[in-house]
């Protein structure tokens, strides 16, 4: 394998991100199902004009924007709208690769409050990759109109991550969302996302390889998640893991900042 893999796809995007004129204090990924008003949240936070639509999967280009909050310069990356991080479309690969290998400081998942159950699928998948997940429960006004009541405190409790209700069209809740992002990245707050427990044979198989995965990736990516993907045998993610290893190899850097923070949360590796 040559050097070619190193500056394509996600890595080209990351390099581009690092070269931007304003140095970001934190990079935040914005994920979500199509039609959840994700782009409206993005516009509301960054003020950058970007197209939003009702069309499923329309935001295919990765848009990025910046905002300043409490003297910190935050870069927000608007990922393609996807139902899941498991399937085969290019959109889903981009979203998954960024959340997993792009090492964002936090990931905000925008969910449609009128249709929470369906949206939780993606939320739970993101939570499996990173504990630094924030749930932005958008269209809360619409849910109210449809007489759907959501117990935010209970949801926060069950999921173990911050849950912020918003109505981005009217800019409601965006201030709270900024604060939650700030607390997750710079604050003392530690999330304890609810772990997914699979059927026994899968759990046994995970356990068999997880420790070795942890060693191989030097704890940089969530070993439980990697082990699960290896069991699943998804070819695209396996290729992306090879690329990641290739990039890791020559540098042998000390363990990154982010990793230490994550470690304090005790969420990688040791948890089941």
């Amino acid at each position: 394998m040559g050097l070619t893999a190193k500056s394509t796809g996600i890595y080209a995007f990351l390099e581009d991100l690092n070269q931007s004129s304003v140095k970001a204090d934190a990079i935040i990924a914005l994920a979500g199902n199509p039609n959840t008003g994700k782009s409206t949240v993005f516009n509301g936070l960054t003020g950058l004009n970007q197209h939003t639509g009702n069309w499923p999967g329309k935001t295919v280009v990765l848009a990025k924007g910046n905002y300043l909050y409490r003297h910190k310069n935050i870069t927000l990356v608007d990922l393609p709208g996807t139902y899941s991080l498991l399937a085969n479309s290019a959109d889903e690969q981009v979203a998954r690769d960024f959340i997993c290998f792009g090492d964002p400081d936090a990931t905000v998942v925008v969910a449609d409050a009128t249709c929470l159950e369906r949206n939780l699928n993606l939320v739970l998948q993101v939570m499996e990759i990173t504990p630094k997940t924030i749930l932005c429960l958008n269209l809360i006004d619409e849910a109210k109109r449809k007489k759907i009541e959501i117990d935010i405190a209970a949801l926060e409790n069950i999921l173990g991550i911050p849950v912020i209700p918003t109505a981005a069209r009217d800019k409601t809740g965006l201030k709270e969302l900024r604060e939650a992002i700030h607390q997750t990245v710079f604050g003392k707050r530690c999330n304890h996302p609810k772990p997914m427990v699979y059927s026994e044979n899968i759990e046994v198989a995970i356990e068999k390889i997880q420790a070795e995965v942890e060693n191989l990736f030097q704890g940089r990516i969530n070993s439980r998640w990697v082990a699960l993907r290896l069991l699943d045998g998804d070819t695209t993610i396996i290729q992306e893991m090879r690329n990641y290893l290739q990039r890791m190899e020559p540098k042998d850097q000390p363990v990154s900042e982010t990793y230490k923070e994550v470690e304090c949360c005790g969420s990688f590796g040791s948890r089941v």
């Binding site: 159950e117 939780l120 739970l124 759907i148 009541e149 959501i150 209970a154 069950i158």
Partner: peptide, 11 residues
């Protein structure tokens, strides 16, 4: 799991 959580938090 999603169904379970939604049942608990959504009325």
């Amino acid at each position: 799991e999603a169904q379970d959580i939604a049942e608990k938090a959504v009325k």
